[in-house]
Simulated assay, not measured.
Amino acid sequence: MGAEAGKQPHGAAVVADGFGLKGPRGWVFRDVSFRAGAGSLVAVEGPSGSGRTCLLLALTGRMRAKEGRAEIGGFPLPRKMAAVRRISALGQVPGVSELDPALTVGEHLHERALLQRRYDGSVRAFLQRPAERAAAARARIEEALEAAGLDLDALPKGTRTSVRDLERLEALRLTIALALIGRPRLLAVDDTDLKLSDAERTEVWALLRSVAGAGTTVLAVCAEAPADALRVTTVAGSARNTAEAESAQEVAEAESAGGTAGGTRTAGGAADAGRPAPTAPPAPAEETGGTRPARGNGTDGAAPSPAGEEHDDDTEEGAADALAETGRA
């Protein structure tokens, strides 16, 4: 694991072309098209209920799209959902990957390191002595904490600080650190700027820029994107909109049951000022260009397929099962 530990994560390029997801209450988002190079910072902005969270989950292989195509790090969606899940990681996504308020910061970090070693460890790592494995786990944790900008010594009780005692920004940094322990090629974070002051938002975007600058592609859901990010804008298109948290909760329930150039793209609803969305979407815009309208009713009621074995094929099995890795992060 020594040579592996020295490798810097290589970001996954993201391509979407007419990407759409339909749930029980209609289209969640539709006609999403954009391109982002490896190591890009992509901001998914829009009002709550416009399909932002579901788009995030679909692009990380956690929800199955119904039309169009996407490619993450060379893996096509929805055909290679399991492969995309292996190279991506979720930061905070309410109702899907949340911190456990009953645990301490240290317990969260230790648990994630154990899970990482159990499910993603190489054969060489299993052959290491216990002391060597522990040292490697500590190195991964320290690397992730540094990348997330979380200073454990600054917390009230250090690693023994309970999650419920963390400030909003500290909790966000912890979720990002937990995700980075796995050295993903794609990091996805929901509600990036929720309940943060202007100064804290500035800190968060600086953090995400540094993560992207280190080589990891970042997808971040937000209410308002910074000017230097590649923006994918979702627009509510129906009075039947529901909160994004409801959609994420449905994903979690399904799991429990079984299983850097600027630019703007618009997705998830009709065009502004009452103009209808285009019936035939234009070719995907490059990373530096244009506005892309898209259709949808903005409902976030889609739920993943029934759980099953995780494998790369064109069935819907495995989408909910994949969320097991995010049970507590």
Results as ranks from 00 to 15, higher is better:
83 A>K: 09
225 A>P: 13
16 A>R: 07
32 V>H: 09
93 V>S: 01
115 L>Y: 01
309 E>H: 07
21 L>F: 02
155 L>N: 03
123 V>L: 12
18 G>H: 12
80 K>N: 11
293 P>G: 09
163 V>L: 04
66 K>H: 15
303 A>K: 11
140 R>Y: 07
174 L>A: 01
156 P>V: 04
34 F>A: 13
121 G>A: 11
179 A>I: 03
126 F>E: 14
96 V>D: 02
240 R>A: 14
173 R>C: 11
135 A>I: 00
39 G>I: 06
70 A>I: 02
145 L>H: 11
70 A>C: 07
75 F>W: 07
215 G>S: 04
196 L>P: 00
71 E>D: 10
291 T>L: 14
299 T>R: 10
230 L>E: 06
180 L>S: 00
246 E>K: 08
87 I>K: 09
185 R>Y: 06
303 A>H: 03
231 R>M: 01
306 P>Y: 05
257 A>W: 11
117 R>D: 12
278 P>N: 10
123 V>P: 13
101 P>G: 04
60 T>I: 05
117 R>S: 14
89 A>G: 03
286 E>S: 11
256 S>P: 00
40 S>I: 08
325 E>N: 01
75 F>Y: 12
268 G>P: 15
168 R>Q: 10
44 V>C: 05
5 A>V: 09
120 D>E: 10
33 S>C: 09
308 G>K: 00
